[in-house]
């Protein structure tokens, strides 16, 4: 780790000012920043420790939905009774992330800003070329070991997968991030790489995520997060799906549907084509399996990750059928 100076701002405003200075980086849970600093990917000159700021860790769940302070710990949100009741997919996404220790450290705001696990991105000395780290330098992953790279939302500049679980559930249920002066839908806040993989979010200099809000919905109440991976625990998703269903009064016909995918795309991937294909239809296995294939529209495989194109629709289908109590 490079040497840095350490500051503890007393207020969010003070933190914003400090974070706007060049070379400054925010430290909340530390699980991303310190990891990347050790890899040589992050080299802050000043670390702004916001973990002691008061009043930013609350979790409120009411009729309108949930408001989660950016410094709330992943574990606290996962175990929150209101979240478990109103947004089961959010709780499930959280407890299946990382490990219990990391979830006690990592904050909700920081989790949404976590960086890709692309092995080429994480190895600056071995692979200087990385458009995320060094715009215009090229992508070392193309043609390399690509088992965990994205099949959706990639570009010739970058094929790095967004590793998040929580963000997938939040995108499914239209969560928003409050950045102080403005509020942005999370789906818009997290960017696909295009020609600028170095731009991962819509966060502007001096902005700090203060709150994450999730509107209440019937679909969110009846939701699940299904994560598939080779190792049973403590691994990033090979493919995952956050789904939620609202039925018509008949209990069979789909009124509202939410589908988002993780582990397969450069950002949490909302599959509106799957949602649209099933809305108004009766939930039944064949229709669900057929519609789930739409999630992979536009998917492009690399040498080692074609399995994701097979796997992801099956994860979506299982999640939907499970949520509809048909699996």
């Amino acid at each position: 780790m490079r040497d840095f100076t350490y500051q503890r701002p007393a207020s969010l405003a003070e933190a914003r000012n400090a974070a706007a200075l060049p070379g400054a980086m925010l430290l909340a849970g530390g699980t991303t920043l310190l990891d990347l600093a050790k890899c040589g990917v992050a080299a802050p000159e000043t670390v702004i420790d916001i973990s002691h700021l008061p009043g930013l860790a609350s979790i409120e769940v009411g009729l309108q939905g949930a408001r989660i302070g950016a410094l709330a710990k992943m574990s606290a949100v996962a175990d929150n009774a209101g979240i478990i009741r109103e947004f089961p997919a959010v709780s499930e996404a959280l407890w299946q992330s990382a490990s219990a220790q990391l979830r006690n450290m990592a904050t909700i705001g920081g989790n949404l800003l976590q960086r890709t696990r692309c092995a080429y991105f994480r190895d600056p000395s071995g692979f200087p070329a990385c458009n995320k780290r060094n715009p215009g330098s090229g992508c070392s992953a193309l043609g390399g070991v690509t088992r965990n790279h994205a099949v959706l939302g990639a570009s010739p500049s970058c094929i790095a997968t967004n590793p998040g679980d929580l963000a997938v559930a939040l995108v499914a249920f239209d969560a928003q991030v409050e950045l102080g002066a403005r509020t942005v839908a999370l789906e818009d806040f997290l960017l696909t790489p295009g020609d600028h993989p170095e731009r991962e979010t819509d966060l502007r200099p001096g902005e700090i995520i203060a709150t994450v809000s999730i509107p209440a919905s019937v679909a969110a109440r009846r939701s699940t997060y299904l994560k598939v991976r080779d190792r049973q625990s403590y691994e990033f998703a090979a493919a995952s799906a956050a789904v939620g269903i609202e039925f018509e009064p008949d209990g069979r016909t789909i009124r509202d549907l939410r589908v988002a995918l993780g582990g397969v795309a450069t950002r949490p991937w909302r599959a509106r084509n799957v949602e649209d294909a099933l809305k108004g239809k009766v939930l039944e296995p064949d229709a669900v399996r057929r519609a789930s294939l739409l999630a992979m529209e536009g998917a492009i495989a690399q040498a080692d990750n074609h399995y994701k194109i097979e796997l992801a629709p099956r994860v979506v289908a299982r999640a939907l059928l499970k949520t509809g109590e048909l699996a």
């Binding site: 696990r117 070991v145 403590y234 691994e235």
Partner: peptide, 25 residues
């Protein structure tokens, strides 16, 4: 051990990417 064939370099040289069993396995 996942090796990048272009550079004969091990790409998962850490305990998050080279998977050993966890308790849950």
């Amino acid at each position: 051990g996942l090796v990048d064939g272009r550079h004969a370099r091990l790409m998962n040289a850490n305990l998050a990417d080279y998977l050993i069993p966890t308790n849950a396995d």
